[in-house]
Design a protein around this nucleic acid. Sequence first.
DNA 1: TCAGACATGTAAGTCGTTACATGATTCA
DNA 2: TGAATCATGTAACGACTTACATGTCTGA
Lengths: 189, 189
Amino acid sequence: MSGYDIKQLVDISLSYFWNISYGQIYPILKKLESEGLARSTPERTQGGRPRNLFSITRKGKMALDEWLQEPVDLSIQRDEMQLKLFIGGHTDRPRMVALIQDFQVQQESRLRTLEAELEEILPSIRTGILPEDLEWLGPIGPTAERRRQIVKDQALVFKLSIRQGILKVEARLAWCKEALEALNQEVPC
Amino acid sequence: MSGYDIKQLVDISLSYFWNISYGQIYPILKKLESEGLARSTPERTQGGRPRNLFSITRKGKMALDEWLQEPVDLSIQRDEMQLKLFIGGHTDRPRMVALIQDFQVQQESRLRTLEAELEEILPSIRTGILPEDLEWLGPIGPTAERRRQIVKDQALVFKLSIRQGILKVEARLAWCKEALEALNQEVPC
DNA sequence: TCAGACATGTAAGTCGTTACATGATTCA
DNA sequence: TGAATCATGTAACGACTTACATGTCTGA
């Protein structure tokens, strides 16, 4: 893939849990190449700015496998909402209530978006056919049968990431409800 | 507070959702002072290395209030677990299952810790008295009555942050269960 | 007496964003 | 013709971590 392709893929498929900028992509691709973890092949094009296509090397694949095996550390997950509540909760209850309510509205809207996106992808797990707007993401496999299998696998992983998003948002909404009740019941500070 | 105090406070009270290092604290305090948002007063000490005590200025309080009012942006919350699943899920199911299982064990243990900490703080919301190991965090208010009220407010905010932690961990555990079932039921890739 | 807590700070480096610079192609 | 998309890249900056440097006091 080219740096541009990577950005597109991340923006569309990984947007629930990751983001990336060009200012990060291009220098890193260069660094990976200099370390022998990736190689680039300039694409011959008939017109248009030439693309630089990157692929992973054997060494790169090994490094990736190693990284995949490392356990994920969630010991610190910064949460700005919590930080604000902690600082403002002592001195300014009404403002904190307003902040939580805004947050709640935002999360409710996000929940609806995620639910719609889940509905869109679900059929692909059974059929192995991507919805039209995601079609270009499809694999280039040898046989139609094999391609469908890859799409099924992709769709399952996709579904799991949307489900994770939904569960997170639901947890935040449950917390908002609790927090608003607690802040309203207690005597103001 | 001194830079050292700030580090202690964050490590103990905000550890569920924030962290900070000395290498960040001291330069930032200096910057805040140069911008007129904080002021420092050297502490006269009878022995011991002299401390540099910082307090917020009126200008600083105004900047803080402004920040408190800004809505919290959660549009991108990076999640390394999801990223690994997305990358490894296509090619290496058994490894992904192992990764999720490790994660599950880690989160279960975290859940127990959080529940214990919640139990410890709950009485303070009613009584206004901090548990012994947190006593030094207590406020220095004018009257005992006022001090108890402040402790009650602090304990409530503290409780809400632990509850948030619990809800998040429960959501992650629910997701692990779903993900493991889905990965086991589907035909391997 | 020596480990551990108290206490402050700098330097180097990583990670990541934003703004800028450049220029071709396509389509309304 | 001009906006949108394709496409690559750099520079400056901000946030943060780790390692290092330094020194005192307290209590087992």
